[in-house]
Each structure stands twice: as structure tokens, then as C-alpha cells.
Design a protein around this nucleic acid. Sequence first.
DNA 1: CCACCTTTGAAGGTT
DNA 2: AACCTTCAAAGGTGG
Length: 424
Amino acid sequence: MPQLNGGGGDDLGANDEMIPFKDEEDHEKIRESAFTESDLADLKSSLVNESEISQNSNSAVIRRGQQEDQRIYTDKREHLDDVPRHQDGGMYKAPYSGYPFLMLPEPYLPNGPVSPSSNKVSVVQQGMHPLTPLLPYDHFNPSPPHIPTDVSQKPGVHRHQSQEISGFYSLPQGQITPSMNWPNQPVYPLPSCGFRQSFSSSLQSSSSFPRFSHSLMLQSGMHPTGIPHPAIVPPSGKQEHDQFDRSIYTKSHAELKREKEPKKPVIKKPLNAFMLYMKEMRAKVIAECTLKESAAINQILGRRWHALTREEQAKYYELARKERQLHMQLYPSWSARDNYITLLTVPRRKKKCIRYLQRGRCASPHSSDGSAIDSSPSPVNHPPNPASPTSSPLPQSAKRSAHPPRLSLDFSRITTESAVRQPQ
DNA sequence: CCACCTTTGAAGGTT
DNA sequence: AACCTTCAAAGGTGG
């Protein structure tokens, strides 16, 4: 919203990378002190303090490494742009387990501590769909592609189809790019003879529908093209699936199990920059301390996020932007609202509302009591999105001062001794 | 078993 | 325009 230009979400932050950073010098100074003891004390946890401090020495190295990565990334992006999109992309891997187009050349993979975290393994196979080799295997069912035929239009489509992709099946080459205002070659060109075309034809064979409903078309993590996609998750384990059939909770477990099988998969939201950062860095944080609670890890990651340089953050914003871009291309009819449960089911809504009321008012989880640590904005005084022309100089967290983090996590449950893992 | 916690950012809705 | 609400990931925790 505020980060990506005022143009709105569907714009996909067209110019979010065009605005130069203004207060980089200040930011650099801030960075140096980002992990001082006083700052860490804000976490109100010796655990976190120590872990953060222990990271201090590492952080410099890490950041240097990231800057290296950034350069490599930039270089490789140019390289990627030269690679025909329809070719077998076997050489690419996914550092962020994101979407196919985001899979980056191996040299871009963080050398070390990063990715092992996730079990996600990028698999390269020949003779598959151009995107398929780039997909992390834990995201999909590797069964043969299946092109659904039931593509009845989903009512109430929220995401409007932008001019650029209005012709989902007839996108002229490069049409999307100029309007996206991307500085370089199109990241997601739609070659007339490449993926997009075969994509079109296979879809057209199913129907002449202009849009399609993911909930109807997707099976077992398969994109309508037959390409498994990380954003498509089988409706298991979590709450996502209950939006499709809330009534199952009134049935027996056996029935429930049986009915779970054919459940429609859910298309997840594309990850934002911070989520991508968390995904990449979580393992590193876990490795540096024995913390396992995601809440604690996320607090640390939040601090680290603010301590990143603009360039470092920009890397993730760029990735996130591409994720959204690809997501929108893959699921033009998808809306974030599709995954809203509270608006579809009363029970959860009630519960959440109560939860917020207990904290003072019925508001966002971000709002809450404002207890605990200094939410204040991390010292980093720059807009999270480097490109938003309308961004205030304040960091997002500062702008959201009305939503101070709760940070009520009980770190006392975690001993300091166990928190910091000795270097091996 | 499942909601909660915790973070930031994006999107959609409301005022 | 500004604000509000929800979801995205993750895994331990507690009801």
C-alpha cells in the first residue's frame, strides 16, 4: 500500500525500485548501532540480547556476503534477461522457494547458512515444462500435469486484470514490461514463442474463459498449466481449507478425513519482502541460537530487517515484487480476499474479534496494547520500499506507530544458556 | 487438534 | 487519503 506507489496493488509496485534512497548515510550510521546492547535491551530479553550480540560479529560478515550476493544478483538478473524464457531452465535454483521466474542462478544462492533451513530442494529435470524444473519439490505433487477442464468463471473476482495482462492468453511479447516501468529487460517477458504461448494454448484448450477460478481449476498444487506451484497448497493441516467447506467440522473425524482428500487447494498470498527475508534468514537465526519459537525468531528477524541496508532490503523488495507479478500472471482472478476467512465464516471472526477486544479494542493484531518493548521504529530511518514516491522518510514501523507490536512473548521461558549456541 | 504468538508488507475494505 | 483488517511463514506453546 504505502510502499508500492500509490497506484495500488495491481500495479505491482511498478516503480518501487526506481526511487533512489535519500538517507543512506544516516541509515549507515544507524546500522552500526543497530545491535548495540541498549537496542537489544529493547527486546527485554537477555536471550534475545545475547543472541543478537552474538550475531554482531557475524552480521557484518553476513551483510558483506549479502552485498556480494546483491551484486551477483544484479549481474545475474541481466544474465537472466538474456536467457530465452522458453528454454529449459535447468540451471536455476530457488533461493527463496518462490515462483519459477524467481528462481535464480546458483551463484546467487546464499553460500552457506541460508537455505538449508528449508527442506525445499530445487530440482532440475529435463524435458519438463520450462517452469517445472525450477520448482521446489516440497511444494507440489509431482504427478503428471493435469489440465483441468472445469474452469467456470469464479464470481466476484476482485483483482482486476490490468491492461498489461488483460490478454492473459494473448500477451504480446514484452507488453507487460514497459508499463511496469522496469529498469532492465523484462523479468517476466512473455515471449511469443515461449512459455506464455504454450501456456495459452493449453489453457485455451480447456476453455475460452477469460479468467478462471483457482479453486476450481487447481488440484494438488497444480497450476492450471499443469505446473505445480508453491503458492498452491493442498488444503491440509491448517485453517485455509475450511473456507471451502466449513461444515466439515461438524462431522466425524472419519468423515472429515475422507472429505479432506478431495479438498481444493488454496492459493496463498505471494510473500512480501519481509517474508522472503524471514524465509531465507530463519535458519541462520536458528543456527546461531537454539531458539526455535518462531515468535522469538521473528522478533529477531524483525530487528535485523530494520538493520539491513537499503540495498539489502531492496533485494527482497524486488523479489517480492516479482513474486507478486508472477502470482498475478498465474492467477489473474485471485484476490487476497479469497483467503479471508473471517469474512466468510463467523466463528473465526468472532474469535479474532474477541482476541482483539481483550487487548483493548477490536482492531488489528498490530494495534493491541503497545506493551512491552520499544517498538519504536527501528532506528533505520528510511521507507521500507525504496521506491515509493510518496513514502515518508519514516520507516513503515514508525508510520505504524498506532500499531505497536505486542512483543509479549515470554522469553523467560527460554534460558539464556540454551539460547546461544556455541560456535562449532 | 488448533489457535496463538511474533514480525513486516501487501491488499482489500471501510470511513 | 487515511485507517483498519487480514493474511502470508514458521514452529513451539498451551488450552
